[in-house]
Every structure is written in structure tokens, then in C-alpha cells.
Nucleic acid binder design. Sequence first.
DNA 1: CTGATTTACTTAACATGTTAAGTGTAACCC
DNA 2: GGGTTACACTTAACATGTTAAGTAAATCAG
Lengths: 152, 152
Amino acid sequence: MTETKQDRGALAETRRTLPIALLRARESVMERFRPMLSAHDITEQQWRVLRVLQEAGEADATQLARGACILGPSLTRILKALEARGLVEVRRDPGDGRRSIIRLTGEGTGFIAAITPESQAIYAGIEAKLGARRLDDLLDGLDDLLRLLGDP
Amino acid sequence: MTETKQDRGALAETRRTLPIALLRARESVMERFRPMLSAHDITEQQWRVLRVLQEAGEADATQLARGACILGPSLTRILKALEARGLVEVRRDPGDGRRSIIRLTGEGTGFIAAITPESQAIYAGIEAKLGARRLDDLLDGLDDLLRLLGDP
DNA sequence: CTGATTTACTTAACATGTTAAGTGTAACCC
DNA sequence: GGGTTACACTTAACATGTTAAGTAAATCAG
């Protein structure tokens, strides 16, 4: 007797469970990006920081950490690495001495530009498999989730 | 001049990008589960292993690693911890001496059962925010993604 | 049946993430 | 305006994840 619906008192099958479904989905996507990232000698996390920075123009560490889903201490190390590599510039906020302001250097902007075509090609491959409509709907769903769970 | 569509030659905004959107979405979900997991003194990864095991009945380490999105060496350590805690039982496959066969102990089954109500309550909270329909559509989308990116 | 290859997992070395305490700056409160 | 309190990071200690080499069993080639 197979149950198509969830048993009362039992957890849903893992495939139909947000934490695991989101993780597996992300894994299947990242598999396609990892070769590119490691070819450019950059970690997933560093790439996220660069992307968020590019989008934000400039940001303090707290905003960056939130945007890139990285904890403070990790961010400290990542910024050190990116700064040492010249991709990023960290300076102190003149108005608030506690705060750091981070922005891309010209080199950092160039680095992103150099990777962009490859990244777009990989993304296009994913879109081709999924279809533009389904991809868009999925992104809408993820965005809704984020919004609705955001404030509580 | 604000662009609603993507610039040619530029990457999509991070919110509309699968790797980051999936990560942020998962973070917003896990925020709600983490207090429960840490209250029961179990890590996210250990919990995934238990859930996959419960679903599979029994599995070898390779299957478990795939199902729980955990790499081999991490799994070795996690299984050691779960075995030491008596939640899981590891034995050698009689037909293939390389393979381990892992299954839940009675205690492991009980542990899951004890957590299930809390987990369901949290999940219900998420479903209430999102709506059953939207949640279901999202899970469908994630499932499609996994299937379509699966084989290449 | 022997040696080479593949498979399944483990160990070891290292990088990264995580939690808790520390440091310095700013804001608040009598 | 001195003394708290809160904030924004940083450092330190530790747990976890990751990659590469190692071990042992099974399979394959001849």
C-alpha cells in the first residue's frame, strides 16, 4: 500500500522537504559552476562576495555578509584574501569608525568581467535544460519564500 | 535609467541567480530549524543522514552520501558520531566486503519520532506563510531542476 | 590463477566555517 | 560628560568540510 500523501505523524519524504530539496537543487547547479570557479582559482564564497559587491557598488561588512550568506569571521578572512589579490578595497567609514566600507577595485571589476562570459554560458546551459519559463517561475518561488519568511 | 531586464554582457542580479537564490532561500528556511536541531544536540548534517536513512530503510555509505549531500570523509565521521550515540548501526555487507550497510537502530527510530512533532510544527509554520499551493509548486520546481540537470 | 584495474571506504593534511570572547567606536542615560 | 550599553568588526579555539593519498576487497584480462 503506497501512500501518495504524507502519513499523519510522519515526516514528508526528503525530496519534498525544503531544506533537503533546496540543498540538492543547489548541489546540482553548483556542479556545473565549480570547474569554472576553480579554474579561476576562486572559491564559491569569494565569488559570492564579488558578485554582491558588484551589485551593491559598495557595502559594509554586515551588508556583505548578509548578502553573500557568509558569517562575519569568514568574511574577515575572505576579504583579506581578496584584498591581498587586489580585487577589493577596504577602507574605514569616515562617519563611523567601527564600520568598514568595501568596494571592488578596477582589477576586481575586470576579474568579474573576464569570468562573466563563461558564467553566462553555464547559466544558458541550465536555462536550456529547464526552459526559460520554468526557471523564471522557480526564481519567483524562491523570491517569494525569502520575502515571506523574512520578517516573521 | 533602470533596467528591468538583464543587460547584455552583464550577469543577472544576484537575487535572480540560482546559486545565490537557492542559498538565501535555504538559509531563511534553516534559520527556523536550527534552534530545534541544536536543542536536540544534533547537527544539520547528522539530521540529514538520519532522515535519509529513515526513508531508505538501509543504505550503503555511497548512497547515503549522495542522498544527504555529504562527502565521503565527512560521512565517515558523522557515522562514527551517530554510532557512538547508538542511533545508527553499521555492518559490513556480507556479499561485498568493501561495502558498509547502515541502518537506524530502534533508538535512532525513536529519536526521529521524538523530534518529528517539532519539525512538523516548524514546517507547518512555513507552509502557513507561503501557502500550500505555492510551497507545492516550489517543490515541484526544485524537483524538475534536479531531474533535468541530473543526467546531462 | 595471477597481476592490473576498479570500487568502496578510510585516513591524513589542510582549508573553511562556527561559536565565543575580545577590541575599539558610537550612542544613550542620568 | 562619566559610565553604561550597544554595535561592528576581529581574533582565537574548535568543529566541520574538502582534497588527495592510502587500504582493502572485488572485478577483469590474459
